[in-house]
Design a protein around this nucleic acid. Sequence first.
DNA 1: AGTATTCACTTGCTGTTTGCAAGTAACTCT
DNA 2: AGAGTTACTTGCAAACAGCAAGTGAATACT
Lengths: 148, 148
Amino acid sequence: MSLEQFGDRWSLLIIRDMMVRGYQTFKQFQESGEGISSNILSDRLRTLEAAGIVMPEPDENDARRVNYRLTQKGIDLAPVMLELLIWGAKYEATAAPCALIAQMENSREQVIAETQRRWRQRDLTPLIPRFDEVPQDIPTRSSERRNK
Amino acid sequence: MSLEQFGDRWSLLIIRDMMVRGYQTFKQFQESGEGISSNILSDRLRTLEAAGIVMPEPDENDARRVNYRLTQKGIDLAPVMLELLIWGAKYEATAAPCALIAQMENSREQVIAETQRRWRQRDLTPLIPRFDEVPQDIPTRSSERRNK
DNA sequence: AGTATTCACTTGCTGTTTGCAAGTAACTCT
DNA sequence: AGAGTTACTTGCAAACAGCAAGTGAATACT
């Protein structure tokens, strides 16, 4: 029933990019590598908005920009995403480093708490970076303070 | 990346029916209410097979029948399903009783263990019945013994 | 033994959805 | 003022989904 929502490959990818990488704008989604075309992206964002999963808010500095933000309902998908990520890592030979995934598996609570914290505080640092440099820990508020 | 797998509404539904309701045959999926047409169902089962998520095995009593079974990879989607179910219950006004869902949320480990047990032992009793009679507990091996 | 029915598909046709290329209107930056 | 950016829309071809009907093998009924 709720599956209807995710009955296409793009919606979940958009949500993942918002949740895990902190993407917010049309352009970011478009350039996120998987190659969604603009008409579909536009449509999906509208669908997700209608479903109450994302909300657009105009950027205060640049009036052309629209920042899409997850709603509570949207961020509550974090556990689903996390499990999917773990499953994917187990079976699909992911680009994300195994060590990181293993660690996430052992501290689901923490990962989700951190994801929600970022969302609440509009902290856009990606939880999982885009497959280049690899942090040894799941970053948390305290480990970030430590690293400064 | 692994999301590619679920880029349509039917695959997840099929997996759910196998995992949660113990469905196994073409006919059961077809009649499972959501109205998938036979050509699409056929195609999806083949796709899932190719992805290593389900495996067909001919029925030993009736040679017309093919029993589709989740693989290990398939059953490992249980945590994803569970979280999705919980999310759905929270936001989508589900037909499944709230009490049951609330209970599942508090004992995820147990629900998943039970799901896996059923799979291993080819126990086809549905974990969540089809929206008619409503058990008060998540059934487990011991509670089932109790109820006999 | 012969007909009917069940089961797991396949085929053909039609309509919707997707993907790509190009375009546009609003805005910003220089 | 002119070039560039951003979030879209439009038009068209190709892929996909959905329906009705059909196939072929296995079983059930008489």
